[in-house]
Simulated scan of single mutants.
Amino acid sequence: MKLSEMVCGTEGRVTGMSRLAPDTRKKLMVMGVLPNTPISVVRVAPLGDPLQVRVRGVDIALRKTLAENIEVELD
Results as ranks from 00 to 15, higher is better:
G32F: 04
D23E: 12
M6Q: 03
R54W: 00
P22M: 01
L34G: 07
L28G: 06
L74M: 15
D59P: 03
L28R: 07
V7G: 08
L74Q: 12
T37L: 07
R43Y: 12
G16S: 14
L34I: 09
A45L: 05
T65A: 11
E11Q: 13
A67M: 07
S18N: 10
A21V: 05
V72K: 06
K26W: 11
E73W: 10
T24S: 11
L66I: 15
T10S: 12
L74C: 10
L74N: 07
L34D: 11
V58F: 10
M6F: 05
R54Y: 00
K64E: 14
A21W: 00
V53W: 01
P46M: 13
L74I: 15
D49L: 02
P35W: 04
R54G: 01
L74W: 09
G16R: 02
T65G: 11
D23V: 02
D49E: 09
G9S: 04
G32V: 08
A61E: 13
A61Q: 13
R63S: 15
V33W: 01
I70G: 09
V58I: 14
T15G: 02
K2R: 14
L34R: 15
G16Y: 03
V55T: 03
V72M: 08
T24V: 10
N36I: 07
V44D: 02
C8H: 10
T10M: 10
M6K: 03
E71G: 10
R19A: 12
R13M: 12
A45N: 12
